[in-house]
Amino acid sequence: MITNTQRQAISNQVSKRRTIFQTSNVTIRYGDKPAIRNVCLSIPEHLITAIIGPSGCGKSTLLRAFNRMNDFIPEANMKGQILFLGTDLYVKDIDPVDVRRRIGMVFQKPNPFPKSIFRNVAWGPIVSGYPGNINERVESSLRRAALWDEVKDRLQDSATDLSGGQQQRLCIARALAMEPEVILMDEPCSALDPVSTARIEDLMFELKEKYTIIIVTHNMQQAARVSDFTAFLDSGSLVEFGQTEKVFTRPEQKRTEEYVTGRFG
């Protein structure tokens, strides 16, 4: 795990990092019920940002806004702006399909396709017409998801035969195979046992070399362990955003303190 001095070193680097997502005054409603209110955030590149908050506070809603997955919820509507490396994700000439190729997502419950392990990982590249060597792409994705050694001898077996933790790492490999720039994770460990959870957390440390990760979690220990930045949401509003260490040890807001010390939520 990460030590305090390492964390300090990282935070020293933060100022040099680019902002990958910039949201300004993002409000998301279901019908006319607001789920996200006026959220302004700058998410730095190549770090792990955690979104925490009590159940129903809008974490998933906000996360889905980053890769336009809210488009599939007919009653959801968004106001405000989300810039991805300076480009507004919600203007007319942006194709959401391209957005999702560059911004991958891992879901709460592992959702491998009922196909072989190989075809799960190869699915995205094949569908998007990847011209290179598909076998290599599958292998490198599985390696990066720390699953290769466990499955290399049974790539043709059904993905649904894997354990829950393996399935989730397969879903991460499947997302990595698209070579995205960002990986959004919505409570990726909530259906997993502690050992599988630890493996995925270790994996996240390795992945942030290459990718920006935004993780939603209701587990505060997890947020404290893995993330560099933490955003605390409550009732759809951003209460506090800052370096994880600071949010957990010296929060500026009373509500944040109450939440991270477990007095509510």
């Binding site: 957005v99 879901f107 396709f113 009922p114 995205g124 569908v127 879903c171 698209m178």
Partner: peptide
């Protein structure tokens, strides 16, 4: 969830 997974891969 399978549809969502596929859409999230940019399909």
């Amino acid at each position: 969830s399978l549809r969502q997974g596929a859409y999230a891969l940019g399909a």
